[in-house]
Write a protein that binds this DNA or RNA. Structure first.
Lengths: 159, 159
DNA sequence: ACACTTTTTGCCACTTTTACCCACAATTAC
DNA sequence: GTAATTGTGGGTAAAAGTGGCAAAAAGTGT
């Protein structure tokens, strides 16, 4: 929050990594997907692709991935849920590189996880990026449009 | 948001963070919209465009947006509601820049959200700015003119 | 080990989109 | 009335996204 009466200098102390917006890109037969140019710089330090929680994929910056793996390591191995979570994240994860055109290669098994075929929706979700099949994303949007449930949830945020 | 009970020093003649009035501007084929000159200075530190609650768009200052995104980031990713909420806000948001003429580019998917075509109504609503399609705004105005229902609804507010 | 096929990877070129700039008209201020 | 500001349109150069080609790598079978 900003100090009252204080004006932020024009030299923008820009917001740390924030992925915003949604983009529909094609996925070629080789499984290559162009990542929106606006997202690339933030990922240039290294990018990790893993299975998401909702029939989608998550593309993480190196620091985000490290933060997650750190937390997972601290959790008790004796807890079955912990072991499942580790399998979900690590077994399905892969470090990805960009080619000159800003594309990443999505491994076959990850494409299957998210039912990706010829097109994909790339969604900025703050700290991370999600990759959806158009159909699954559409279903997700429809669910979110359910105004009734939304107003309940929104109230938590006091917007 | 302002600290409760804190009064801005009198040195500042005009009120800050106060967007007032309504303007009807054109939206060209490229999706560019001129923001009223009176609103620009306040947004010069960075502006964010997001989906509104009533079939419209909201244009926020950087600090307003930071307040929202800060709350979202603190929530647990493993909670499904958190993930939904983030998608609702972040996926439907976009950081926007001004060109030399004081225009912003409204991404295609956000134009669709608010049914924006060749014209838009830009409304100052105190802390934030709303962008409406002329039709939706007209309907909104009609509803507010319904004095009967208003007197009921607002009577509880002790203004 | 060698030739041959298949897959992967990097590169280039085309098309579309976006950003940037300038000019004009209309409005507002002086 | 004149000058400055504001809103609008368009043109141009740069960047982004896409598809395809070719070199490199990895497998495959004899």
């Amino acid at each position: 929050m900003q100090t009252p009466g204080f004006r932020r200098p024009a030299v923008n102390a820009k917001l740390e990594h924030m992925f915003l917006g949604q983009y529909r890109h094609t996925l070629d037969e080789k499984g290559r997907l162009t990542i929106p140019a606006r997202f690339r710089e933030e990922l240039s330090g290294g990018a990790y692709l893993t299975q998401g929680f909702d029939h989608n994929l998550r593309l993480l910056t190196e620091s985000s991935f490290e933060a997650i793996s750190g937390k997972l390591s601290q959790m008790k191995t004796t807890d079955p849920t912990t072991r499942d979570l580790r399998r979900l994240i690590f077994a399905a994860a892969s470090q990805v590189d960009f080619d000159q055109a800003g594309r990443i290669l999505i491994p076959q098994f990850l494409r299957e996880v998210a039912s990706l075929e010829s097109d994909a929706v790339i969604v900025g979700v703050g700290e991370t990026i999600e990759i959806w099949s158009p159909g699954a994303w559409e279903a997700q949007v429809m669910r979110l449009r359910d105004v009734e449930s939304n107003s309940e949830r929104f109230s938590e945020l006091e917007l």
